[in-house]
Amino acid sequence: MNKMIISVLAKDRPGIIASITSDLYELGCNLENVNQMILQNQFAGFFITQVPKSLSCETIRQELSLKEKDHELTIHVRSLEEETPAPVAEKEIFLITTSGPNQKGLVAKLSSIISSFGANIVNLKAVFMGGSNPNENVMSYQVLITKEIDAPAMFAALKEKAKELNLDIRIQHKNIFDVTNKI
């Protein structure tokens, strides 16, 4: 068996997951991991699956496209190498939350700073505040910080950029969100 990751994009409707997983089952695939999200009305699904050795990435893509031809899906398939797990580094997650006026390039500007320090964004979301005020655009970046990263310098650079962009920025260790939300 080979391991592959399949991404599926489509306008959201009932039955997408049922349909894709049935197709994979018929192709002899064994699902290992699935995740999905809905952004506005768009469905995005990710399927990591064990695929029979006789089937290539292109074959899987073509078979799925054929089976789902009436459903306007965008399908991408990529082979995954079996990787030996990296040694566990000492790491902590910080939530960087910005709020302020919506503006072009906002995410690019902040994520570039995070990237330049070698930190990894493990989750990024635009948080819906529930109001109609365009000045209450809230973005939350969950960033993995390892010991090698100069966190104080990165936080200072982010605060500086936020000031320039007229954003309120809060940088807080993830544990504070755990204790205020999880029992």
Binding site: L95, S99, V138, R170, I176, F177, T180
Partner: peptide, 16 residues
């Protein structure tokens, strides 16, 4: 991972 409401409620507690 935290949902929208969890993030907002924690930020609100500190900020406002």
């Amino acid at each position: 991972m935290f949902d929208d409401q969890e993030i907002i409620s924690t930020i609100e507690m500190v900020k406002n």
